[in-house]
């Protein structure tokens, strides 16, 4: 479990970082917090020719709250999100979910951009980005582009990013004031990879009926995604325990999980229903 040999670069500009990646023709990898890439390399599951460290690239590590959206730099670490009062005010679910992200040592180092690019199906932030209709800003040798979070993930540990593209920021729409939300995750131990997790939020219209229902799932699917049938079952309804129970069943039916050593397909599917129900109950409180 010792690292293979590799070259190391610590560029001081984005352009330089992109150029290094482009020159390697796909054999180099950007590294941010290194919380996933380093173990993968130690296990020799990845042997990049070089690491392009983004630590000295300026302008990637701030949280900016604008009128309509909040812009979170790719090098922002979980700890910053956890502690940002402003963020907690405009998109409260982000800060609240952070306590589920691994352990505090890892939260001190792990980054937003790293997690999105790694695309672990059990990770919290990709699901938060998808559920919150976030947009991902990337820069590559062909220029900059913005990708809808839902389009970024193409499979487990796979994204649509080109080899020389670097995530620079994620932009999340600011929430309306009275938005209702819940976040539920089930893991074997605190901080473990999620067996299943649910991000849920909705607004209430003037009649007190649910509108803008969003339900995002992770851990139980190949990629983080929303559950349109469950959302449809919520919209236009009055919140109630019976409704949440029904919507939980709909959510269960919308996923087709994999089995692994920690959880069977059926168990995971059932968890999705249970957690959906609980997240909605949490939202309604």
């Amino acid at each position: 479990m010792k690292l293979p040999t590799f070259d190391y670069h610590a560029p001081t500009s984005l352009a330089e970082a992109v150029a290094l990646l482009a020159a390697s023709e796909g054999s180099a990898r950007p590294i941010a917090g290194g919380q996933s890439l380093m173990p993968v390399m130690a296990f020799r599951l990845a042997q990049p020719s070089a690491l392009v460290d983004l630590r000295h690239v300026p302008g990637l590590d701030s949280i900016e709250v604008l009128a309509k959206e909040v812009k979170i730099g790719a090098m922002v670490r979980w700890r910053m999100i956890e502690e940002s009062r402003e963020l907690a005010r405009v998109v409260p679910v982000l800060a609240a979910a952070m306590e589920h992200v691994a352990h505090y040592q890892i939260r001190n180092r792990g980054t937003v951009g790293g997690s999105l690019a790694h695309a672990d199906p059990a990770a919290e932030f990709p699901a938060l980005a998808v559920a919150c209709d976030a947009v991902i800003d990337v820069v590559g040798s062909k220029g900059a582009r913005a990708i809808k979070a839902a389009d970024l993930f193409t499979g487990a540990l796979e994204t649509c990013l080109a080899d020389d593209e670097i995530i620079t920021a994620v932009r999340v729409p600011v929430w309306p004031k009275r938005r209702r939300w819940g976040f539920q995750e089930f893991a074997r131990r605190r901080g473990d990879f999620a067996i299943a997790g649910i991000v849920a939020f909705y607004d209430l219209d003037q009649q007190g009926l649910i509108t803008q229902a969003h339900i995002g799932v992770f851990g139980a699917t190949d990629i983080p995604r929303r559950l349109p049938n469950a959302e449809a079952a919520l919209n236009g309804q009055e919140p109630s325990e019976a409704l949440f129970e029904t919507v939980g069943d709909v959510a269960s039916g919308e996923v087709n999980p994999q089995s692994d050593i920690h959880a069977s397909r059926d168990y995971r599917r059932s968890l999705v229903g249970t957690l959906t129900k609980r997240a909605l109950a949490q939202a309604a409180k």
Binding site: F186, I195, H262, A263, S264, D266, Y267, S270
Partner: peptide, 11 residues
């Protein structure tokens, strides 16, 4: 007595 096994028993 993993969560999955207890859930299986209950089911």
């Amino acid at each position: 007595l993993s969560p999955n096994r207890i859930w299986d028993l209950v089911q």
